[in-house]
Amino acid sequence: MVKEYNGFRAVKGIDFAVRARECFGILGPNGAGKSSIVNMLIGLSPVTAGELRVFGLDVRTAARQIKRRLGIVPQENNLDPDLTVIQNLVIYASYFNIPRETARSRGLDLLAFFDLTAKAGEKVDNLSGGMKRRLTIARALINNPDLVILDEPTTGLDPQARHLVWQRLLRLKEQGVTLILTTHYMDEASHLCDRLAIVNHGEILAEGAPRELINRYVGAEVLQLGRAAGEADVLVAAAGPLIHGHQVVGDDLVLYPRHGQALLRLLQDREHRFSRLLLRPATLEDVFLKLTGRGFES
């Protein structure tokens, strides 16, 4: 699947499949092409080349049938500011031809599920960022979708609000809803996703379960040496067989140890030369660093 905008290739030919009832993550930095992928998935932006099927239907010809069974949480909350909280759900349901009474009772259930019952009659503008996000997710569930697509569901939320959203998404997954989410938060991806694709510059660099990706590309632990990039060659040579790889990230040197404790002992006498010497469990961020040779937020 390829997406071009005026000659710029935002998505350079990617291929992935999502299984029913799983949570599939599309993980990558800003500008990696995540939103382009989502916009094609929901039929908002035409596929330049290749094939894209949702529920086995071609997005080019069956957009309406597909959207009937989709729940979409866009990156930018586009709640209707002219309507109240409950009206947002009921009116949105009407776009699916859901009868008013059904919509209302389902809307109230969803508000309860997302801790928004007290706000039912409130205007949308009076909600906090976290509440707006929860309402946007609630809205995406009004048609009982088989697949929910969330574009950066927790970007811009404070930690409490993020955790609340995560808990609700995990409960949805338990209820058998298939989820596709994009994120640039590593912890979000490891917390929620069964499988994920790491994307960068419009390409998929790696795909698999979070733990499996970490084991495959980095191993269990990494040793991070602050301001050690200058003597990388010396240190890598000294570490010898104790490491199975390394990566220079800006000023830092990241080593992938075979025996973390042994490596730590070896380097401890030089500790004063580094701004930081840290042996820690490997994360998806390390996988990304390894795959791209650069930091995630840069």
Binding site: P74, N78, D80, D82
Partner: peptide, 14 residues
């Protein structure tokens, strides 16, 4: 500004 149409076309509306 309100992105109302973007929300609408995420449903079966074209």
């Amino acid at each position: 500004y309100q992105k109302t149409f973007q929300a609408m076309v995420a449903t079966p509306l074209s």
